[in-house]
């Protein structure tokens, strides 16, 4: 018994152990402070939180789950990128391969259902924040960041929808992006676009309007697939990640989870 205790003690005091675990198990006040302060992920939290704010019935965990689902999407998406090539020759067959050849593969399922769940989680989070009036001063700015993150979530899901390159994908994106041709002034079928002309030359036409820029062509094709792939895997996650950093930091600066004043 005392020998076992000695072994435990010497492990806990070893250089290797103390390099990774800088404090004991968080069952004392001192260690509960240290665990939050010394861990890069946990230090998103304050050391102490309002008791009313940690209740499930108040926050519904919706914001935390939105972040969790974002991380899940990042990891599963990264694994999918090993198998998937964003060209019209390969995209569809790579998805078939993923289904037929990868043993026990549920990464695509996790990624797709996780994406739907994330859209719902973000809505629920916004709904909760509204119903508790948590957008009110001093949190107006963070509500705005949140609205942008909501839009980014929808854009992430929308750009990802095209990548399997099946009928479902291409026509959903065709319907969705057809709206862009009617953008006022910037779309070739939008009100006011006909006014933007120099002499006989119209400045906004089917070959250079906002829809063309989005699709990289006149219709959903190879250019669109590459564009949406880059937006989906690199551009939007980067912007969203940056937005989340601001969002979480602002939550802390504005006094943590909201509560009655």
């Amino acid at each position: 018994m005392s020998r076992l205790a000695n072994v435990k003690k010497s492990i806990a005091r070893s250089q290797l152990w103390t390099a990774f675990f800088r404090h004991g198990y968080p069952d004392t006040d001192r260690n509960r402070v240290l665990v939050i302060m010394s861990n890069v992920l946990l230090h998103l939290h304050p050391v102490k939180v309002r008791k009313s704010g940690v209740k499930m019935k108040y926050t519904w965990c919706a914001g935390g789950l939105s972040f969790f689902l974002f991380l899940l999407e990042t990891i599963t998406g990264l694994l999918l990128m090993f198998y998937y090539r964003p060209t019209i020759e390969y995209a569809y067959v790579d998805i078939i391969d993923l289904r037929e050849q990868v043993p026990l593969g549920i990464m695509r399922e996790l990624h797709r259902w996780g994406a739907h769940a994330m859209v719902i989680a973000v809505w629920v989070h916004m709904f909760r924040v509204f119903m508790t009036g948590s957008y009110k001063p001093p949190r107006e700015f963070n509500w705005n960041v949140g609205v942008i993150l909501l839009v980014l979530t929808l854009l992430l899901s929308f750009t990802g929808y095209l990548l399997p390159w099946d009928q479902l994908a291409i026509w959903a994106i065709t319907v969705g992006s057809n709206m862009a041709r009617a953008t006022p002034f910037l779309g070739h079928e939008g009100p006011g676009a006909a006014l933007l002309r120099v002499g006989d030359v119209s400045l906004v036409h089917i070959g250079d309007d906002v829809r063309f820029a989005l699709l990289g062509g006149r219709f959903v094709g190879a250019g669109t697939l590459l564009r949406f792939y880059v937006l989906h895997c690199v551009a939007i996650p980067l912007i969203a990640g940056f937005g989340m950093a601001i969002h979480f930091w602002r939550v802390r600066k504005d006094g943590g989870i909201s509560g009655p004043l």
């Binding site: 968080p26 665990v35 939050i36 304050p46 102490k48 939180v49 008791k51 009313s52 009655p260």
Partner: peptide, 16 residues
């Protein structure tokens, strides 16, 4: 919510 908004609890374990 006011009842215990003045009280604070440890993030570990309550929140984590």
């Amino acid at each position: 919510e006011q009842e215990d908004s003045g009280k604070k609890v440890w993030a570990w374990p309550d929140l984590v």
